[in-house]
Simulated assay, not measured.
Amino acid sequence: MQEGFRLAIFGDIHGNLPALTAALTDMARQGAEAHLCLGDVAMDGAWPAEYIQRIAALGCPVVCGNADRMLLEAA
């Protein structure tokens, strides 16, 4: 039997780079072929710039979460 396409869906990590790294490692271990980020990527975390760079490197779609919207509206 052939397995289906594996899409990894994640979000609400809020700039926590160690949590993102652990999650991506687990997604890869489980055979994720593509990613979808449900947002809330940078606000309140210790590593917002590095987190955004990691998400950008994935090249995946990213939904604008409510925390992302608040962060962008403050600019």
Rank of each mutant, 00 (worst) to 15 (best):
L7Q: 11
T21Y: 02
A75L: 14
R6Y: 06
M27G: 01
A32N: 08
M70R: 14
L71K: 00
W47D: 05
H14V: 06
L17A: 11
V41Q: 00
R54P: 00
A34N: 05
P61W: 09
A67E: 07
E33R: 11
C60K: 03
F5L: 15
Q30V: 08
C60H: 07
D68M: 07
C60I: 10
C37D: 04
P48Y: 05
H14S: 08
D40F: 03
C64G: 10
V41W: 00
I13E: 00
I13D: 01
L71A: 08
A74W: 04
E33Y: 08
G65M: 07
A46F: 06
A28I: 11
Q30L: 15
M27I: 07
W47F: 11
D40V: 06
L7M: 13
M70P: 01
Q30R: 15
A23L: 12
A75S: 13
A32R: 05
E3Y: 10
M1P: 12
A32V: 09
L17W: 04
A28N: 14
A46L: 13
R54F: 04
D68L: 10
F5P: 08
L72M: 15
A22P: 03
P48I: 13
A42Q: 02
M1I: 15
P18W: 09
W47Y: 11
F10Y: 07
V63R: 05
Y51D: 02
A46W: 05
H14D: 07
Q2M: 14
A67I: 08
T25N: 11
T21M: 08
D68C: 10
A75K: 09
W47N: 04
N16W: 04
V41A: 03
T25V: 09
G31T: 08
L20S: 03
M27R: 02
V63W: 03
A67G: 09
L58Q: 05
E73D: 13
A42L: 05
N66H: 05
G39D: 04
A22R: 14
P61C: 13
C64F: 12
Q30G: 09
A32Y: 03
L24V: 04
E50H: 05
Y51G: 02
G11F: 06
L71N: 00
G31Q: 06
A57P: 04
L58W: 01
D68A: 12
C60R: 07
V62P: 00
P18N: 10
R6L: 11
G59Y: 06
M27K: 02
F5S: 14
G45P: 01
L24D: 00
L36N: 01
V62F: 00
G39V: 05
R29C: 12
A56S: 10
A56W: 02
